[in-house]
Design a protein around this nucleic acid. Structure first.
Length: 926
DNA sequence: CTGCTAGCATA
DNA sequence: GTATGCTAGCAGA
């Protein structure tokens, strides 16, 4: 770009590179992480943003005008860590060798140099790109100046600043002045954060406006503002980036001195050698072997590392596992090693497989390495994409996958893993179809002990008495977490090979428990294992989303929210954050003196929907809040979020179905959750219009009718209830006729509504108290309805009693298919907890059996689609509903067959019924 | 940056 | 009154 100036805020990146990188060292032990990060970043910038002029700007030593103005400036900042200070000089050296002009101006901060040059560039008709990790520089953005953050890949133009901060670039100074900057020790207004600052600036336009109207702002924050009035002008000067520094005095201007030079190969070679960057050295010198660690040293170092005997016998004295297992882990770096392992797994009766990847997102993560284990204690790790500074040469990902493909894709080669649904996605990301999944330790644990945790570290502790290396031990956590491809090979092998080893041992420990119990084995083998294969396909199919429609809805809702917000401010006679229950409570119950209806568990007055409904009868503000809450939820959770979750490659949303989290056997959906898309209100249902079918396809949805009540009829065997379903009656209406003692045809809609609430209450293990509060009636009246119900449906009463008894005696209840649902607190001495467990015990068999049924239906539907070579695809499961995307040519077929498969998936004492809907989108299909 | 609470969407 | 997951605000690092 001939008309572009590229400025890098070197000082801000120094810190970020230092903290983002692991503690890398060269052979001499000198720290090199920040150097590595910095070089990497500059290389990428130069290729991504070719510019006529460029410079890397650093802070110089010495005081600046800000120190004179405010001695406390940056006073709180901790001294630079030694390990970073040691890297400053080398970084300057590297930047120069790379051909970048460096600017360091004594007495002028890097920010001010950047600001001044950006203004000069604009005056000369140039566009400026500022690469920084510091939000303060957002104040410089205008049509000719853009910020980029290479660490987060974020790009901020004028619109971007407005979106990110809620104020335009010309208000950033005011905004930052109000908030203050804790890093530089510049105070703002106490308790004023981003939300409040945006609110004030929206109300009074500018900092000067806020200052002029300071007396109008109520509350503690208003007092804080008034206390800060004297300070704010000074704060503003500190926050403001100078754009008029006299750089000419330092002979700096945008001329040939800011034109990048060729990288000096000789200097870089010397530099890489000096600091031990072997991969780059190899790259630059064109010598493929330079610096590669000899294989033998790794093999030696790794074999036998972590030589702890596993104390398997401690917890499993059934002899399934040898009492001591000596771990012997191998890093596979050569063709010969790989061939030896392929021979082993081809001969093995069962092999544990595990993948290491670049992220936890199943659809986008890339393979970093594979571990295998077919004999407890003997495992290997095959790294294929580790790329830290001096990583040894590895076999390529493509070649390893091609060599392993015949085995991976062979249905007859038995595999076990921990959540292989994830690994299946990873292999699919590279064009390999994982087959032959015969066991999954995640599902074994889930079927065996639904209520316990199923992650590998806790499983290893529980079943093998072994403390494993955790992912966090290896990669750290939070912001400082590194990608697995940055992990040093020996450490990676210790961790990854152990995972495969432990997986195999876990299987050997848990399988006997399941194998010897016919019900558990059936649930595991006939339901959970095949379900996981189906789920992987559904996730991969994804759901097509109309982004434009959602964006339009977001805009529309956004406008309405602004109106409601203003409306609320007027009613409250002050601005406040409508999203903050705390602030809302202060206004409602403090300022306006509204009555407290109920309290939250932690004692604060509640402002939830029920309370607002009640208060809305007498006051105007709660009504506004109700509409605001409803719309804000739709916008933030759905219309804003879903478009962002669309996969760039497929144009679809790919949820993740968690198969082992819900203790009842249900699935859970996350990232995004597709099981809570609104349906009750008209406003909410519009979101379903954005769940669309591809061209020449339709959405077909089928849901089980009254599934849990039917299951209650089946399990309880209650004659009246069974008859109602057998006769195909409206079950709520039938219940109402029984309770109110009237003929079916005389049931009023009010009576039916009551009966419906009671039916749902029964499924949830309700009490008279709960029923009363739900129906808004006296407790005694509720109790008499319940008594009447149990009198009319004695089988149901018996079932409730039996369930409680069984739960207390065994600690678990069962579904119709024999799934065990454990109730940890069923015998708790704590009354409320125990009662909670009793209600859960009553609900669990119904919810759990429904979950079993739809899982069986999913397996049946997938089998049918595949056996008949149909193009139709399952794309969602919502507890009692299956959603398919169907080519128009298969519409009639699916419309007929889908509900049949669902209804006939099991023969209960009641008929099962599935109802079908068809449309161009999910809303129409209902 | 992390963990907590409040609130709310679904079956 | 059962079972989930997600967002925003906020307090304490």
């Amino acid at each position: 770009m001939q008309n572009t100036l590229l400025l890098v805020d070197g000082s801000s990146y120094l810190y970020r590179a230092f903290h983002a990188m692991p503690d890398l060292r060269n052979p001499q032990g000198e720290p090199t992480g920040a150097i590595y990060g910095m070089i990497n970043m500059l290389r990428r910038l130069r290729s991504d943003y070719p510019a006529a002029y460029m410079a890397c700007v650093f802070d110089a030593k010495g005081k600046t005008f800000r120190d004179d103005l405010y001695p406390e400036y940056k006073a709180q900042r901790a001294a630079m860590p030694d390990d970073l200070r040691l890297q400053i000089e080398p970084i300057h050296e590297a930047v120069k060798a790379m051909g970048w002009p460096i600017l360091m101006v004594e007495g002028v901060e890097a920010d001010d140099v950047i600001g001044t040059l950006a203004v000069e560039a604009t005056a000369r008709g140039l566009n400026t790109i500022v690469s920084t990790g510091d939000k303060d520089l957002a104040q410089l953005v205008n049509p000719h100046v853009t910020l980029i953050n290479t660490m987060s890949n974020e790009k901020l133009d004028e619109a971007g600043v407005l979106t990110k901060f809620g104020v335009p670039p010309e208000r950033i100074i005011d905004y930052l002045t109000l908030i203050g900057d804790t890093v530089d020790n510049v105070p703002g207004v106490t308790k004023c954060g981003p939300k409040t600052a945006v609110k004030w600036l929206a109300e009074y336009d500018s900092l000067d406006g806020v200052i002029a109207n300071a007396d109008k702002i109520k509350g503690v924050v208003g007092d804080n503002l008034r206390a800060a009035l004297d300070w704010l002008p000074q704060g503003r000067v500190l926050i403001t980036v100078k754009t008029d520094c006299d750089l000419s005095a330092h002979h700096i201007s945008i001329d040939e001195s800011l034109v990048a030079k060729e990288e000096s190969k000789e200097a870089m070679l010397a530099f890489y050698k000096r600091y031990g960057f072997k991969t780059w050295l190899r790259e630059l010198s064109g010598d493929a072997t330079a610096g590669a660690t000899p294989l033998s040293s790794i093999a030696k170092a790794t074999a036998g590392s972590g030589n702890t005997p596993a104390q398997a016998g401690l917890f499993n004295d059934d002899g399934a596992i040898p009492a001591t297992v000596i771990s012997n882990y191998e890093t596979v770096l050569t063709e010969a090693q790989l061939d030896a392992w392929i021979a082993r797994i081809n001969a093995a009766s069962l092999t544990a497989v595990d993948t290491e990847t670049t992220s936890l997102e199943p659809m986008t993560a890339q393979l970093v390495g594979i571990s295998l284990c077919c004999e407890a204690g003997h495992a290997c790790y095959i790294p294929v994409a580790h790329q830290y500074a001096d990583a040894p040469a590895q076999l390529s990902r493509a070649s390893v996958l091609e060599k392993l493909r015949p085995w991976l894709e062979d249905d007859s080669k038995a595999k076990v893993g921990q959540n292989l649904k994830y690994d299946t996605h990873i292999f699919a990301n590279h064009g390999v179809a994982l087959r032959g999944i015969v066991h999954d330790t995640l599902l074994e644990s889930y079927v065996f002990e639904s209520h316990k945790s199923h992650n590998m570290d806790s499983l290893a502790l529980r079943h093998l008495g072994k403390k494993t290396i955790s992912f966090e031990d290896v990669c750290g956590k939070g912001a400082a977490q590194i990608c697995f491809d940055q992990v040093e090979l020996q450490r990676a092998t210790d961790y990854a090979a152990e995972d495969a080893d432990i997986t195999l041992q876990l299987h050997l420990a848990m399988w006997p428990e399941i194998e010897t119990d016919a019900s558990l084995q059936r649930v595991y083998h006939d339901i959970e294992l095949p379900t996981s294969v189906v789920l992987q396909k559904i996730e991969r199919n994804g759901v097509l989303i109309n982004k434009d429609l959602l964006n339009a809805q977001s805009n529309e809702i956004g406008k309405r929210l602004l109106e409601l917000e203003q409306n609320a401010y007027e009613l409250a006679e002050q601005p406040f954050n409508l999203n903050s229950p705390k602030q809302l409570g202060e206004i409602f119950f403090g300022k306006l003196g509204l009555p407290v209806v109920k309290k939250t568990p932690s004692g604060a007055p509640s402002t939830d929907e029920e309370v607002l409904q009640k208060l809305a009868e007498d006051y105007p503000l709660p009504k506004v809040l109700l509409e605001y809450r409803g719309l804000a939820k739709l916008k933030s959770t759905y219309t804003d979020k879903l478009p962002k979750m669309v996969n760039a490659q497929t144009g679809r949303v790919h949820t993740n179905y968690a198969q082992a989290v819900a203790v009842t056997g249900r699935l859970a959906s996350n990232d995004p959750n597709l099981q809570n898309i609104p349906v009750r209100t008209a406003e909410g249902r519009r979101i379903r219009e954005a769940f669309v079918a591809a061209p020449e396809h339709v959405i077909i949805s089928a849901d089980y009718s009254q599934i849990e009540l039917r299951i209650m009829a089946h399990i309880s065997g209650d004659a009246s209830l069974l008859k109602a379903f057998a006769d195909g009656e409206d079950v709520h209406k039938a219940t109402a006729a029984e309770i109110f003692g009237v003929a079916l045809d005389d049931v009023t809609s009010e009576q039916r509504r009551y009966a419906k609430v009671i039916n749902f209450g029964l499924i949830y293990g309700m009490s008279a108290f709960g029923l009363a509060s739900n129906l808004g009636i006296e407790r005694a009246a509720a109790q008499s309805y319940i008594d009447k119900y149990f009198q009319r449906y004695p089988g149901v009463a018996q079932y409730m009693a039996d369930t409680r008894t069984k739960a207390k005696a065994h600690g678990y209840v069962e579904t119709v298919f024999g799934r065990r649902l454990w109730l940890a607190e069923i015998n708790s001495p704590n009354g409320p907890r125990r009662q909670g467990a009793e209600r859960a015990a009553i609900n669990a068999p119904m919810q759990g059996t429904a979950a079993d049924l739809i899982k069986l239906a999913m397996i049946a539907v997938q089998n049918w689609l595949e056996n008949d070579h149909l193009q139709s695809k399952m794309i969602m499961q919502v507890h009692d509903e299956l959603v398919l995307e169907v080519p128009e040519s298969e519409l009639e077929l699916v419309r007929k067959k889908l509900p049949e498969l669902m209804a006939n998936v099991a023969q209960l004492h009641v008929p099962l019924l599935a109802e079908v809907g068809i449309g161009k989108n999910w809303e129409e299909a209902h």
